[in-house]
Design a protein around this nucleic acid. Structure first.
Length: 261
DNA sequence: ATGGTCGATGCTCGA
């Protein structure tokens, strides 16, 4: 059995202490981070290594994006893909000794206006997710786990108000269609919703609220998917809402799942 | 309809 966590950390250097706290308190076997906002050689790896996370696979760039996989189980670098040819560090994969492949993804946020004719970033987001669909269609994932900040909340109960968010980037019908097409192309199972089939679930709350907890205007942007051959091994999904209340928090909280493999 | 807050960078952009 192993546990995996995904967390958009919004600067791994600023929040090195929060990462260490999560590793100490939850001790996931694998932690996938997004928005590290750091070149790989400036990620503070020594503290993570000291906590037992000796295997690290990462892609980085200065100031923006960046993905990293910290693991206390041996794993090897399984490459990356430049989805939508953006030249951004938004994907990296790793392989465990049991043959399981882990994809760590950071889908573009997509800007404010949900119209690709006036907002290039929205088009890039759609293209990114469409390429995910094509890749998974061409080569159906097996013994694979996909985690990350997908920046789309697909279900009505993944947002605080379905109606009020229909024209808000992250919950527009075209984004949801794209995400579900990518999920379906790979026969991916949404592990979090397999474990927690109903009810409101959020993994992100904006910084721009006076009181994020009281307002509770969240969205489920962070996901854990599994290929169908291992999806029944998944259990014990959790979203760590209290982490949003830690000092100097990320606007995202960790999402976890366990796999009996 | 608007503005609200973060982080990295370097006096602005992306989220």
């Amino acid at each position: 059995m192993f546990t995996i966590a995904t967390w958009n950390i919004n600067s791994v250097r600023l929040r090195e202490g929060l990462v260490a706290r999560l590793l100490r308190e939850e001790a996931p076997d694998i932690l996938c981070l997004q928005e590290c906002k750091s070149p790989v050689d400036k990620i503070p790896l020594d503290q993570f290594r000291a906590l037992g996370y000796r295997w690290i696979v990462a892609r980085g760039q200065k100031g923006y994006n960046g993905v990293a996989i910290l693991s206390r189980l041996p794993l090897t670098d399984a490459g990356d893909r430049d989805y939508a040819r953006l030249g951004h560090a938004r994907h990296v994969a790793a392989r465990l000794e049991n043959g399981v492949t882990i994809h760590n993804m950071y889908v573009p946020a997509g800007g404010d206006i949900p119209d690709r004719t006036v907002n290039e970033k929205f088009g890039q987001k759609l293209d990114f997710v469409a390429e995910m669909r094509d890749v998974f269609h061409a080569d159906n994932p097996q013994r694979s786990i996909l985690v990350g900040d997908l920046n789309i909340a697909p279900r009505e109960d993944d947002v605080w108000s379905h109606k009020q968010l229909l024209k808000i980037v992250s919950h527009t019908p075209i984004e949801v269609d794209h995400l579900l097409s990518a999920q379906d192309a790979g026969r991916w199972v949404d592990v979090t919703r397999q474990d927690i089939p109903s009810g409101l679930l959020y993994s992100w709350w904006s910084y721009r609220a006076r009181d994020w907890d009281a307002a509770d205007k969240g969205r489920r942007l962070d996901h854990i998917w599994a290929s169908p051959d291992i999806a029944n091994a998944a259990h014990n999904s959790r979203i760590l809402r209290p982490v949003r209340g830690w000092d100097q928090p990320s606007d995202h909280v960790p999402v976890l799942a366990s796999f009996d493999l």
